[in-house]
Amino acid sequence: MTESLARQRVLGRMLEDPAYEARLRADPAALAREEGVTEGFVRGLAAIEPERVSAFRRSRVHKDEVREGKTPTKLGW
């Protein structure tokens, strides 16, 4: 489960931190060495289009807002 822990740390940081995402895209091999995960895994993350990462972040924020009642929902369109 150590491998899973390390992979989740890397993906989690990529989704949370745009500066980390930029570093991952710029030098996947160095980041893989630093984090103790396979280079193939990091290259797979680097291949994810930036707009998909942005969509993940937007979706998260939107769902948080709906669940917290900040986004208006009402009966009727």
């Binding site: 899973s4 992979r7 989740q8 740390r9 993906l11 989690g12 989704l15 949370e16 895994f41 769902k63």
Partner: peptide
């Protein structure tokens, strides 16, 4: 998965991603 920890950090210090993240 929903939470990730920094290297050597305990679960209580995990970052909550707040959205469903894919597993390998």
């Amino acid at each position: 998965f929903l939470r990730a920890t920094a290297q050597g950090a305990a679960r209580k210090d995990a970052v909550d991603l707040g959205h469903f993240a894919p597993m390998v």
